[in-house]
Simulated assay, not measured.
Amino acid sequence: MDITRFGHAALLVESGPHRVLIDPGTFSRDEAFDLTDLDAIVVTHQHPDHVDPARIERLLSANPSARLLAEPQTVAALDGLGVWQAMAADVTVELGPSMTLTGVGFQHAVIHPDMPRIGNVGVLVEAAGTRLLHPGDSYATVPRDIDVLAVPLSAPWAKVSETVDFVRAVAPRIVFPIHDCTVSELAYPIYWGRVAEMGGAEQALLLGQDGTASV
């Protein structure tokens, strides 16, 4: 399995003939919206840093046969921008004999009690004997037997102690950061350093905004 970051929460996951793009949002690099030959585009929730309505049409036009999968409320929010299929928790979508996508969780993490919560469905990608979790914006659901965790590093709803505890609960073999455009370069070691040191994963990879890893 090859994983490429395109900034913030956007990931391209490739295995064999399959290519899946997750969460191409407003903080994502422009190159994410020029990708082609995608089997699926997945959106975990409707916040713009996870799906950019201004650029998504370009991506959809370049990938007319891609399956469009999104959290149910997000399907409604994207009405008129392609034909999206609702992706619910514990529902598995087969892209072929060598890759499946399974929905994980239900709701976005609490930002503030006065703010209504929206839906959030993370995605578990299984391919080539590897299980990758992209949780979207939530630490609430902890699937078993995760090999690789893309962990949200900084958000209005998160703090470092919660991030460390989530990594420990998931107990992945490999962890790398996503959702980090809100962290300055100077402060980055404070956030990632604590997670890498205290999370307990065998390997902590710092992919950066546009890094690639084979796992």
Rank of each mutant, 00 (worst) to 15 (best):
M1Y: 03
D2I: 00
D2W: 00
I3K: 06
G7P: 13
A10L: 11
L11P: 06
L12C: 06
V13E: 05
S15G: 14
G16K: 06
G16C: 04
P17Y: 03
H18Q: 03
I22Y: 02
F27V: 03
S28I: 03
D30T: 09
A32I: 11
D34G: 12
L38S: 11
D39C: 07
A40C: 11
I41R: 03
I41F: 04
V42Q: 04
V43L: 10
H45I: 07
H47P: 01
P48I: 13
D49C: 11
V51A: 01
V51N: 04
A54P: 10
R55N: 09
E57Y: 05
E57N: 09
S61W: 00
A62Y: 06
N63M: 08
R67F: 00
L68Q: 11
L69Y: 08
L69R: 02
V75I: 09
A77R: 12
A77D: 11
G82K: 08
Q85L: 01
Q85G: 02
A86C: 07
M87N: 00
V91C: 00
V93M: 01
E94N: 08
E94M: 06
T100Q: 04
L101C: 12
T102N: 01
Q107M: 14
I111T: 13
M115R: 11
M115Q: 10
P116D: 13
P116F: 09
G119M: 06
N120K: 10
V121L: 03
G122R: 03
G122F: 00
L124A: 02
V125R: 01
V125W: 00
A128T: 15
L133T: 08
H134A: 07
P135V: 08
G136C: 11
S138D: 01
S138C: 08
V142R: 05
A150M: 10
L153R: 05
S154H: 15
S154V: 15
W157S: 10
K159D: 15
K159I: 02
V160W: 05
E162R: 14
V164M: 07
D165C: 03
R168W: 10
R168Q: 13
A169Q: 12
V175F: 12
V175R: 03
P177D: 13
D180V: 10
T182I: 03
E185I: 12
E185F: 09
Y188D: 14
P189E: 07
W192F: 12
R194E: 10
A201W: 06
A201V: 14
Q203D: 08
L205T: 08
L207K: 10
Q209G: 12
D210V: 11
S214D: 10
